[in-house]
Amino acid sequence: MTGLPENAAAKKLGLVIDLDICVGCHACAVNCKEWNDGGHSAPLTDEEPYGPDPLGVWFNRIHTYEAGDGPDGRTVHFPRSCLHCEEPACVTVCPTGASYKRAADGIVLVNADTCIGCKLCSWACPYGAREYDYADGVMKKCTLCIDRIENRNLPAEDRVPACVSTCPASARHFGDLGDPQSDVSRLVAERGGYALMPEMELKPVNRYLPPRAPADAPASTATAPAAPPVTDETTARAPAGGTGSRFLDWVDRTLSR
């Protein structure tokens, strides 16, 4: 049924993504694709993967943003996937009941056997989390790797979503955000984790941990050589927008006249 579960358990499984340490390597997206291409919503069809306009289904995509300007500006790598909302519009708009939210743990899933491929759920999702599989004619989305987290054939430490298990920077965390004592909930409380686009009132479960301000970043304990200090000399030689060479700057000025 596309009604939301009435007696939902307190359990809210979800992800916590640390934007401070995500390095933008796309490993989580690749491992997601790898696992889920044989998982619950398999296959994640690629169309013309070697053609000029490849198109394919991915549950997890990594954007990179610039925020702010000047010395306070930051480049932030931003993994984006389904947020497993507490009040998901994608579920309630579904005319067939194929889209549903599990009462036991809040995971939002699609039943590929009853989905009619009307795409309305993807229209209802402001996060762009659902992707239509043109070849299968059904909607697909992040399953939070239900076929890993409950998989008794896997060693206990591997029963986490593929994106979490593969992250080389440990920027991704999986757990119960409905339990205030869980590791993920404590991490969110400690770091000021936030929800995306709260104004859409869908109550996302996933949380993002903000990049730390440069001053708050923990002091580096690594033995990396210190960067050479920026002197007045070097800044004088490289005016904003300049090339760093007096000659080339002169050429640039002359040609710009």
Partner: peptide, 12 residues
């Protein structure tokens, strides 16, 4: 608001 990065500045 979509990225939650507004506290840093304009997001592009």
């Amino acid at each position: 608001s979509a990225t939650g990065l507004g506290h840093i500045g304009k997001v592009r």
